[in-house]
Amino acid sequence: MLESIEPSYNATNALFASFTYDRIAARDWARDNYDADPEFPSDDVQGTDCANFVSKAIHNGGIPQDKKGKWYQAATWGGWPGDHWFRTGYNGKTGVVIYMKDKGYFYKESKESTVNAGSIMYWNKKSHVALVTYGDGSTIKYTQHGASQTKDTVYRTENASFYKPSSSILK
């Protein structure tokens, strides 16, 4: 059952979500499912399964699907999901990064030393996202679906931005 979750705000306009995000549960889901067959392989749709994979991971971390907001998975394997669910945000209009930022659930983090598991890694020069599965202040690792599925790949030279979960939704 899909439910639309609208955040509420207090008198100082701080976000209060009716759910919590467990970034470690999202990380564990990504690690456990990195080698699953891509639901949207690149020969079926333009792009790869990367945003679908990240959306599933953060949903398994506790962020509820939102039918009205177009962030929901397909009803059947390979069916049509919401626009924000299986797009990265590279087009500037729809995608998991845009949805999470607009809802206030994630924010862009400029200090790589603070990035940790459960964050989203977003490639700046191509349409691709991954889930950060490790961050200790000096090393960042990510797990992805893309041209290949990889687990705990060490971030080195990718031109990427990072989006961390807002403290208002963290478990």
Rank of each mutant, 00 (worst) to 15 (best):
L2R: 14
E3W: 01
E3S: 11
S4T: 15
E6D: 15
P7S: 10
P7Q: 07
S8F: 02
A11S: 15
A14D: 15
L15N: 07
L15T: 10
F16E: 14
F16R: 14
S18M: 07
Y21E: 00
R23W: 09
I24T: 12
A26K: 02
D28R: 13
D28W: 07
A30M: 03
R31A: 01
D35H: 10
P41S: 08
S42F: 13
D44R: 13
D44S: 14
N52Y: 06
N52D: 13
F53N: 02
F53W: 01
A57M: 03
A57I: 06
N60D: 13
D66V: 00
D66T: 00
K67C: 02
K68I: 10
W71T: 02
Q73R: 13
A74L: 05
W77P: 04
G78V: 06
W80A: 11
G82M: 05
W85R: 04
N91R: 07
G92V: 01
T94H: 14
V96R: 03
Y99M: 02
M100S: 10
S110H: 10
E112Q: 13
V115H: 03
I120P: 05
Y122L: 05
H128C: 05
V129T: 12
V129A: 08
V132E: 08
T133F: 02
T133P: 01
Y134V: 04
G135C: 07
G135E: 06
G137E: 07
S138A: 12
K141Y: 02
A147M: 09
Q149P: 01
T150N: 11
V154R: 11
N159S: 14
A160F: 03
S161D: 10
S161N: 07
Y163M: 03
Y163F: 14
K164T: 11
P165S: 04
L170V: 09
